[in-house]
């Protein structure tokens, strides 16, 4: 009974709990949990897919580089959902506890609890990577804002601000508009 076998044996259960735990931070977790169609339920679907992939990687001591894709799938959503940075990444940590609980409750595999150092270290790396991704997402979001202003769409609402970005002729006209 090595640890790899332990992860395989309890894998589904652990991922399920992990997904459940992560989604329980949402108002409508009932719906997010139940509907498995990725397109009908993008939040729940992406979390399930992302956490599943991530768990596989964590449990086999994969290169932290590989964490990026599944983390991006989860964190990009949480980065726009009114969570503080800490709240956004916190559920990742939960898998440590979930795994410990799962092993501790299993008589045959209780001894594996002592062998979790590598796994937990991987989780720590994933959490750190998640912070990076969270920040990238936020920065991307601000880039999107700036791009919108530059593209000219912004002129719709507040003509004063983007007018400064336009060439002379337009600038004049827009000011006139403002002076209605």
């Amino acid at each position: 009974m090595d640890i790899a076998e332990g992860f395989r044996f309890h894998g589904d259960k652990i991922v399920n709990r992990w997904v459940e735990y992560t989604l329980s931070t949402y108002t409508s977790s009932g719906f997010f949990l139940k509907e498995r169609d990725k397109f009908a339920n993008p939040v729940g679907g992406n979390f399930r897919e992302g956490l599943q992939k991530l768990f596989l990687l964590l449990s086999k001591d994969a290169d932290p580089q590989e964490f990026t894709a599944p983390l991006e799938q989860i964190i990009s959503i949480r980065a726009v959902q009114e969570f503080t940075p800490g709240q956004a990444v916190a559920p990742l940590n939960a898998v440590k506890h979930i795994v410990r609980e799962a092993f501790a409750a299993d008589k045959e595999r209780q001894h594996l609890v002592g062998e979790l150092y590598d796994f937990e270290f991987s989780v720590d790396l994933a959490v750190i990577a998640a912070f990076d991704i969270y920040m990238q997402c936020r920065e991307r979001l601000y880039q999107v804002r700036i791009a919108e202003i530059k593209s000219g769409n912004h002129i719709l609402t507040d003509s004063k601000c983007p007018s400064s970005m336009l060439d002379g002729d337009n600038k004049k006209n827009i000011k006139t508009v403002n002076g209605i």
Binding site: S24, T25, T27, T84
Partner: peptide
């Protein structure tokens, strides 16, 4: 043993009744 810890963690996640993401409306 680890259950209380998990709860603690979830407290750091769910803070205050924000409807958009957070509290479950009971």
């Amino acid at each position: 043993m680890s259950v209380p810890k998990l709860e603690q963690l979830s407290q750091s996640v769910v803070q205050g009744p924000s409807l958009a993401a957070g509290a479950i409306p009971t």
